[in-house]
Design a protein around this nucleic acid. Structure first.
Lengths: 179, 179
DNA sequence: CGTTGAAATATGAAATATCATGTAAGAGCG
DNA sequence: CGCTCTTACATGATATTTCATATTTCAACG
């Protein structure tokens, strides 16, 4: 039998009990997310965008003309923060804002031609980068990872179809907090 | 054959091409991470902690007495930011700082008795919360998700054993950027 | 040793984010 | 309608973060 290796007390303890963080889902998610994003975020910044701006572009790429509140939910940021980011992006000519004439409280955000160009370019980069990332896993596992993430996501925010509803006057049904 | 449902052009387009974000790994990771953490972060704040503070406590819970730089890497934040957070936590009596006498550039951060108490309490909460989260998936899938995350994480930061090395004078080998 | 270069942390100034509200519209209802 | 409640967005004040850089200490080497 191999003789005991020489560990510090702390290390031995860690092995015996198992560390907490190393297997803690929220930490795993946050740190994989950060690690996976790091490389791409560097690309984003090289193109002169900030990460939150990229997120806005990507959201509008998928569905242009969102209202501020919904966009904020999509990109997971607080409303007043998004307001100011959109403001800067407007000044930089990436987006424009138009009042929703059906509900004049709402402000809808649209990509400008320039914004679309940048968005397309960056989405292409993102797809490239994603392919490189996913190639770190066997194809089956890559698909499985995504599918598990989607499933978990769906079950956490057991939420209705829309979020701030598209139709004015419908009470915003915020995701029922399951956890 | 069922007749065509009435979709807007944009929606039809989305279905045809598939939206970008809905299947984009980095977005999936970020948004699952945010959604999964939301509930627990509310608990953290209820206990009068900020999320970054909780992260520090959790890291020290696993391995007390880290140096600032390494702790910053562990909790994924920039060094000067961590310095100030640790400072506040010191003032609040959650941690203390002691110079490393083997290398006096280094500052090591330790949990105080109070810090340990809070850390233990919160780790217990975290474990509870994690269990609730994981119960949203069948046990096998939960395990699989974690294992895939770990695998991906390992392959992204194709990194050596330590990070800022424990032993003074060893050149810090930063994770080779694979992606 | 003395010099040069890198590492570890701290810190000032500028940029951002957050929190609490203010203001302007819609919705619901008697 | 007129009143009241809620939603959507903006904004001021405060707190936090970031970025660049200063300071101290160690490592390497002639």
């Amino acid at each position: 039998m191999a003789h005991k290796t020489d560990l510090s007390d702390a290390e031995a303890e860690a092995l015996r009990e198992g560390r907490f963080l190393d297997d803690y889902l929220l930490f795993l998610l946050a740190s994989v997310s950060a690690a996976a994003s790091e490389g791409f975020h560097a690309i984003v910044r090289d193109r002169g965008l900030k990460v939150p701006e990229w997120r806005v572009l990507a959201s509008l790429y998928d569905s242009d003309g969102q209202m501020i509140t919904r966009l904020a939910a999509l990109v997971m940021m607080e409303q007043s923060r998004l307001t100011r980011i959109v403001e800067r992006m407007d000044e930089r000519g990436l987006v424009t804002r138009r009042d929703d004439k059906a509900d004049r409280r709402r402000v809808r955000v649209y990509l400008t031609a320039k914004g679309k160009a940048v968005a397309h370019e960056m989405v292409a980069e993102a797809r490239d980068h994603e392919a490189r990332l996913l190639s770190l896993l066997p194809a089956g596992q890559a698909r499985q990872l995504k599918s598990l993430l989607l499933k978990l996501h769906g079950r956490i925010g057991a939420v209705g179809p829309e979020w701030p509803s598209e139709k004015p006057g419908v009470k915003a049904q915020s995701p029922r907090r399951v956890v």
